[in-house]
Design a protein around this nucleic acid. Structure first.
Length: 227
DNA sequence: AAGTATCT
DNA sequence: TAAT
């Protein structure tokens, strides 16, 4: 039997027209895993709705008296908060006065799998910041440095509308590179990259089939227990 | 301060 | 570009 000839443009017949690499290194220790969370993205969005029914999204105050444009909540043993007195991790939601909702086991497992795929074994996050971006909201360049222990990586899961992510260096003066983060992408940074500055440009308006006019971001961290 | 204003 |  003569084998049938390969189809022309097989990637189009499969609907796989995106030829970008699935794995991108931004700098040593920073790896973008494109589409890593796609298979469970609808479950992640369902869980976000459930968790934020318990600890609702809110915009937090910055120490200078400003207010963040991105709405936040948390799950897990510790949650990141900011108010006039500063940045810190707390075991309870200052709005509800109750413990932050439990981190879903599937979330912990996803974060650990992504970290391992990026070269960081044994990641065990005890904090997950849940961010909701609406059109025009942004996050200025900053370092994640409130965790007390920088031996474990940061794992960031993007859902919904795409956004331009800014990846800087160890000093604020280093000009950041911009890279598009899309639904299902997971970005992991640790080791030499753990304290790199990062942020996002203002969210461009749009409609995502699963989230509408919004982007959600899950940021997993290990926070050292306070003495 | 993960914001903003004000400086160059 | 500082600075907290």
């Amino acid at each position: 039997m003569r084998p049938s000839p390969p189809p022309l443009l097989p990637q189009m017949e499969l609907g796989l027209t995106d030829t970008r690499p699935s794995r991108v290194t931004l700098s040593p220790g920073a790896v973008l895993l494109r589409g890593f969370a796609l298979p469970e993205s609808t479950e992640l969005l369902d869980a976000i709705l459930h968790l934020t029914a318990l600890s609702p999204f809110r915009t937090m105050q910055t120490p200078g008296g400003g207010r963040m444009s991105v709405a936040m909540s948390n799950c897990g043993p510790l949650g990141w908060v900011t108010d006039r007195s500063g940045y810190r991790y707390t075991p309870t939601d200052p709005e509800t006065l109750a413990a932050w909702p439990d981190m879903p086991p599937a979330w912990h497992a996803l974060a650990a799998r992504a970290a391992k795929a990026a070269g960081f074994d044994n990641f065990s996050p005890n904090a997950c910041l849940i961010n909701r971006y609406e059109p025009h909201t942004r996050m200025a360049l900053h370092q994640d440095k409130d965790e007390g222990d920088f031996s474990q990586p940061i794992v960031s899961v993007s859902l919904g509308l795409p956004i331009a992510f800014l990846w800087g260096g160890l000093k604020r003066s280093t000009a950041p590179h911009s890279i598009l983060l899309e639904h299902g992408d997971v970005l992991v940074w640790g080791g030499k990259a753990r304290l790199h500055y990062h942020g996002v440009k203002p969210l461009a308006d749009g409609i995502h089939p699963l989230t509408g006019r919004a982007r959600f971001n899950l940021t997993f961290r290990f926070v050292a227990p306070r003495s």
